[in-house]
Design a protein around this nucleic acid. Structure first.
Lengths: 336, 336
DNA sequence: CTGAAAGCGCTAACAC
DNA sequence: GTGTTAGCGCTTTCAG
């Protein structure tokens, strides 16, 4: 079954194919009558426009690339959904690639997306260094970064991670905790660096020492994170509160705690970051730092489309994080 | 910054651009020396092949469309990840569309994907009827359906939903439950029909009546499902076990139960379906019917690529579901 | 208002 | 081995 092209339609309509093209793109200089006739004919013949061919001449494909670490992570899948919906409403499509946090895959994904002639790229980079390479690769192609894993020189939209780290840390000290650990994300992540910084600031302000546990970069999946939490909890019983780099990791801590017989929040207060939807489940009920993921996705698309349409400015949007209090942190009487 | 094309490279190399094309696609009749020279030059000039242009002549874009209800649903995001990884390993890219369970959106998404000249389409349809329309639209385009929302006439990969419903129902009766409700998915879903059927069969076998609660098709998000569960639980205290159409819905039941002060599993046993990753969280610990989602995604891609590459057979792959026992169902002494 | 024709970047069949 | 050329399906001047 051959695809029906603009030429086939033109032939049946008894006009030149240039006319069909113009009718379809609603050119003003075509009579309403012909337009109507041609459109009906297209419908009838089952004509499907070929965007690739159009892209060739218009130098634009209406396709946006999206590179994320892992869509199966609810944090990213929530964002991905919002991105797809927003983009579609504006006539763009989304080509997704997952990097599984490999900088090589990330670079390769960017290359392949470029080959597909995407009009722009939204990326949540693995590290600032990998982002720099992607930026160079992309040249003047519209590019928007989500998060803080970049070294500047690009439009980005993020949340105030230092502030989030600070708010979280302060909340815990205000509850009376003194032995607080921040269990971090991968050391190569700038986002992690910023959240840690905010946490440290809050600790300093309260005169607490604040333990920071780092997650080695090769530490990949949840299970291994759970092990990390396990080791830490087993070795360090005096900690009364843990602030986790992300909700996902907090779930790992929960698991480890449960395996060690530590009750949350009775024996251990736990605070997450990201406020993924599962944090609000009744049995999880995780207190978390929330940032506006949907807004983030939407803004990323809007900034990108603006760039695609000619806006050359570089924007830096920082969303305000917010503490969502649920049931995993409890106050401690300030003893002594 | 103009993109550098095959012509630019040819000019710099002092050869015709046909030669460059052949060198790049590793044609045997080109001398190794020229190939090497041309490739180095491409590298140096930052040449990026234009897949759209290639697609025009080769009639293939190496892009696969994926239509799912909602990637932010962990069930689909797990599958989506597997699909993307599998496809990428075979040189294909994924263009995703979310339907949010709207049949109109679904159709529109399919149309738009066709315009993008995808080589094939993987879809998890909203209803058998909507699938039929998509099938018609796609004509001879390779198409693979995930799940049971189809009326045949296509390659599909699914899990044995009748069996899953049966296994789940049987498990509950074997635990001694007699007052069991199946809280279903949307009535327009064939998957739901099959799971319900399996459930009924198990009930009949055990001589239980088995209550089936249907979810009206316009009932969309989790919150409303939670309301449904709420109403049901409030009105029907004597039920001792609930088998939920999906884990997501089971989480809604959990929420409702918790709001009504019903403890799980002490007051109410709960069984889910899909075994999403969050089912295994320590605090959730949801007993569930598992099917091999990753395998499903992988097979869908493999079947599709086989079709793209010429295999014309129609395949029906049915994966075997499996009961994963965790902590939300308890045995009841067979009183009286 | 509409037709003719050039060309977007690339591949492949045909020359030499 | 390599050059030449005809399209792939479409948009867009330039004529008329």
């Amino acid at each position: 079954m051959k695809r029906v092209t603009i030429k086939d339609v033109a032939e049946r309509a008894g006009v030149s194919y240039g006319t069909v093209s113009r009718a379809l793109s609603d050119h003003p200089e075509i009579s309403e009558a012909t337009k109507r006739r041609i459109r009906d004919l297209c419908e009838e013949m089952g004509y499907v426009p070929n965007m690739a061919a159009r892209g060739l001449v218009k130098q634009s494909t209406q396709v946006i690339g999206l590179i994320v670490p892992d869509v199966s992570n609810p944090f990213f899948s929530e964002i991905a959904l919002e991105i797809e919906m927003t983009a579609r409403a504006k006539g763009y499509h989304i080509l997704v690639c997952n990097t599984t946090r490999s900088t090589e895959w990330e670079y390769e994904a960017a290359e392949q997306l470029l080959r597909q002639q995407i009009d722009g790229l939204i990326i949540s980079p693995v590290t600032p260094e990998s982002m720099a390479r992607v930026q160079e690769l992309c040249g003047s192609l519209p590019l928007v970064c989500m998060g803080d894993n970049h070294n500047g020189g690009c439009t980005y939209v993020s949340n105030d991670n230092v502030r989030g780290g600070y708010i979280g840390g302060r909340y815990l000290t205000q509850l009376g905790h003194r032995q607080i650990a921040f269990i971090g994300g991968r050391t190569t992540s700038n986002t992690n660096r910023l959240r840690t910084e905010g946490f440290r600031r809050a600790m300093a302000e309260a005169g607490c020492e604040g333990i920071v546990v780092e997650c080695p970069p090769e530490m990949d999946d949840n299970r291994r994170y759970n092990e990390l939490a396990h080791q830490f909890l087993a070795a360090r019983p005096p900690v009364t509160a843990i602030f986790s780099y992300s909700d996902r990791f907090a779930l790992g801590v929960m698991q480890a705690a449960s395996e060690l017989g530590l009750r949350i929040p009775e024996d251990l207060s736990l605070l997450g970051y990201d406020n993924i939807v599962y944090a609000s489940l009744p049995r999880i009920n995780l207190t978390s730092i929330s940032h506006h993921k949907r807004t983030l996705g939407r803004m990323a698309v809007n900034r990108l489309i603006a760039r695609i349409e000619g806006d050359t400015a570089e924007y830096h949007d920082i969303l305000e994080p917010e503490l969502i209090i649920r049931g995993t942190c409890r106050g401690i009487r300030s003893s002594l």
